[in-house]
Design a protein around this nucleic acid. Sequence first.
RNA 1: AGCGGGGUGGGGUAGCUAGGAAAUCCCGACGGGCUCAUAACCCGUAGAUCGAUGGUUCAAAUCCAUUCCCCGCUACCA
Length: 701
Amino acid sequence: MNRKVVINCALPYANGPLHIGHIAGAYLSGDIFNRYQRMIGNEVMFICGSDEYGTPISIQAEKEKVSPKEIVEKYHREHRKTMESIDIFFDYFGRTTDPEHSEFVEDFFRDLEKSGYLEKRKMISAYCPNEGRFLPDRYVNGTCPRCGYENARGDQCDECGRTNDPQDLINPRCAICGSPAEFRETDHVFFLASKLEGRIREWLEGKKEWRENVRSFSLNMIQGGLKDRAITRDIDWGVPAPMEGMEGKRIYVWFEALLGYLSFARKYSREKGESDYWLNMYSGGHTFYFLGKDNIFFHAILLPAMHMASGKYPLPERVDANEYLRFNGQKFSKSRGIGYSVDDILKIVDKDSLRFYLSSILPESSDSDFTLNEMKEKVNSELNGKYGNLVNRVISFAEGKGIHPEYGEGDDLDSTLEAGLTKFLSSYLEAMERLEFRRAISLWLEAVKSVNSYFNDAKPWDMVKNHDPKVSARIWHSLKAIEYLTVTIYPFVPSGAERVWDSLHGVNMPDLPLKHLEEVCTFSIRNTGPVFKKIEIEEEEGNELNLVVGKIIMAENHPNADSLLHLKVDLGFNVIDLVAGIKKYYDLKDLEGKKIIVVKNLKHSKIRGIESQGMLLAAQDSRGAHLLTSDEKEGTEVLIGEHRYSGEGKISIDDLKRYDLKADNEGLYPTAVIGRDRLYMTANGKRVYIDEKVEGKSQIR
RNA sequence: AGCGGGGUGGGGUAGCUAGGAAAUCCCGACGGGCUCAUAACCCGUAGAUCGAUGGUUCAAAUCCAUUCCCCGCUACCA
């Protein structure tokens, strides 16, 4: 087995820090595969780099009053450092602002032109005479022709949702400076992808081993035809389009960035002093791309189309896209402060723990959820408790009792163990080949359990007591088993695995550790204390929901909304205004005097003109909404389980979701989750209830 | 609204593409074992109408239809 393998990870955009969603989306999978491929003896070229052109960067630069170059410089350096901080080392980490990249792109562009895949076409585009530039659709504002909303955007009207064409807007204006926009004719170069539609479809259809999410999604996408795409833009920050009459135009960032994989590989080869190395590597035909699902179109359709058109480079063997990683059930969002950047999370956990946890929740087939609590649980119980402790217990036992591990024929226990490990290894390798990394980890975990179990059953401590000389063979077999586990976890937790190897052998892990497994080796163990440490994360447990019983003293229809009610609610000491969307389900006269449960410390929010100073809770099922209620006096505090309200300040709707409010299985009582427990709510010791039986587990809002 | 993903024991999940005897794993609860180890590890028990309804089938968590709910995306930005 000695194949040439090229592994490419989607180029991160150089306009902000990388968060753990990016890592789980593309880079960790790429690195796991990279390490795996090297481990089994293949030659690997592992490439990535910064995507540094494009409008968002130039706009950001304008805002921050710096040059695009400065922004790009900063994040290029930062990204590379971040990758290395979690043991992701590319052979080459390039950048698209590199002149050698531009040169490559321009050559590629000319090649396509020669072979008839490019065509100049006229387009009408919005233009701001004041700014002196063409405007992307969303930078055109005007009056919506359908609803009359005056601030509709050129792409879509926020008010009525209609998708617009900038030319449809009445009184179109430049969104940047506000001056009236004009429409001018402009030339753009189109990539004639439609010519390749049949070939792309056929090619995709043949990729049966690809993940469902990539193959079906792509096929689905070109169902309506593969359209020719404009690959030039009227912007300043990009690679110039090398075509007559196209002066000042830049090549569309995506078109250009996708060529980074090749141009970076070429640059890498040149720096290596072996200028054809990259072509040589690509000629193996094993090219793998790792990316997030938002990049599927570009890698599974556009890139292969470009390669087909040029005819020079092999098509991907595999395009592997992960879904999204969420944080506590929500999308990672820097602006809303949801989730962690890599640099921030590394202040809380070490890289091995992070890689281990992320590996075990890689969003391979559907979105997955990152939570600190789960990370702590998994890392402490699996990586530490099961694996780390196994290493530690065997080594410290052997050393403590002065046993020198020596190979010897084993008994039934040993041969069962060995057979189990052999089987494990082959299914592990199969999973890795198929890029099923989560499965590989879960197989590994099973194997770890079986070795712990073996060690328990083997009871070497009894053998020591009985002066059984076979104990040294027993320890040898145990160490061999640990070796298996260590080698197989290496692609996921490289630093940790190397530390374990060191304590088994006192030397660095060899380049081809898999081969070593078959050898009757000698061990030279060193007890350096636990290789992994448990992580400490303070749990965010507690009740930060300030719930009270309230009594509706006034209910009226909301003057400006169809489905909302305006309520005044007595909370015992004060009366607040609430806006609630239950108009469809309750009559006004039934509501007055009714006791309800109110979230008192929710951020106030103006809803269609009336400020809602809290939120009432109701269970919602297919038939409608049903209020939570209690017979206790208004103002009575509502507890979740034993938890009293212990928070401070206002909470947001997003915070509320953490409690996962739901009706119980019978649909009679509301429940909320605090920590790991689903708990009932009580007021004065009596359960809060739902005013009418609902479907079990109905959501409460 | 459109597109995409999902609803599986108390919490988190696997399984669904190729339907099949007891539904996986982690945490938690309960009981036991062990004492080498990081209060760790190992074994066992309880706990799931696999969102709902209907259909196909000898057989459905898995396929089809309908429906309810949740989440994400919906910038010719990249």
